[in-house]
Amino acid sequence: MIFCENLYKAFGDNHVLQGVDLHIKRGESMVIIGGSGTGKSVLIKHIIGLLSPDAGRVTVDGQVVGDLHEDELNEMRKKFGMLFQGAALFDSLTVGGNVGFALKEHTDLAQSKIDERVKECLEMVGMKDVERLMPAELSGGMKKRVGLARAIAMNPQIILFDEPTTGLDPVMADVINDLIIKTTRALKVTSVTITHDMVSANRIADRIAMLYQGKIVAIGTPDEVMFNQTNPAVREFVEIGRIIRQTEAVQGRHIGAQ
C-alpha cells in the first residue's frame, strides 16, 4: 500500500537517499533502522509528502504523492498520523489543544467530545491531567508522548513514528511499544517506526528495513535481518538485537509465542 520506488534526495552536496525501494504492506508494522544521519527521517517525510524526491516516487494507496493537488494531498494526509522526532508540538497551544487539533479542524465534534477523545489518547500514552499545560512545561519524554497522542487522535490508517521511545525510561518505553503493537494489531493500522532501540524493534516489528548509505541494504522479518545477513555493516548494527533475540529464544519468550 505504500511504495517507495527508487527515491533519490540530496540536500546540496549531501546525497541522502540514493535509490530507496521500499514496500510497506497494509497492516504491517515496519521498523526502519539505520545509523544516525542516514536519512530515516527524510525517508518518512517523503512518505507523507513533506519532502518531494529528486527522482523516484512515493505511492500511497495507488496515489502518487507528488502528483496530488493540495486538497487531495490534505485528504491523503488525513489518513496519516505522524510523530516527529522532536515531537513538534505547537508551542502556542496547550497539550489539549495539540492533541485535539485535527479533531477540531477536521471534524464537527463538539468540544466536549473532543476533550473526551483527547483525554483518552493521553491516557493511552500514560498521561493524565496535562491538557492545560503548555508544551514548554513538559519534559522531553512527555512531549514525545503528547506527540504520540496527537498522532493517534484521529484514528489514522497509517502511523509514522520517528523514534517513539527515544528519551523514555524503560517502563514507559514498554508502554509505548505495547501501544504501537496494540494499535497496529487490533486496529489493522499500518505503522512505520524509526528506532534505534533494538528492544523496541524486536517487539514491534513485523519487518525490519535497514537504511545504509542511501539505500535499503537489508529488509525482512527480524530473524532474517538479524541472523541471515552477510553485510558487515548490518551485522554490526543488529548485534544487540541478535543477542536480545537469542536470550529471548532461550527464555521462550519470543514474540511469536504471544
Partner: peptide, 18 residues
C-alpha cells in the same frame, strides 16, 4: 522560524492544516 526549525510547520502539514 522557530516553528519551522522545530518542525511545527511540518506538523501542521501532516495534520492537513495549511
Amino acid at each position: 522560524g522557530t516553528m519551522r526549525v522545530t518542525e511545527q510547520i511540518d506538523a501542521l502539514y501532516t495534520l492537513a492544516a495549511n
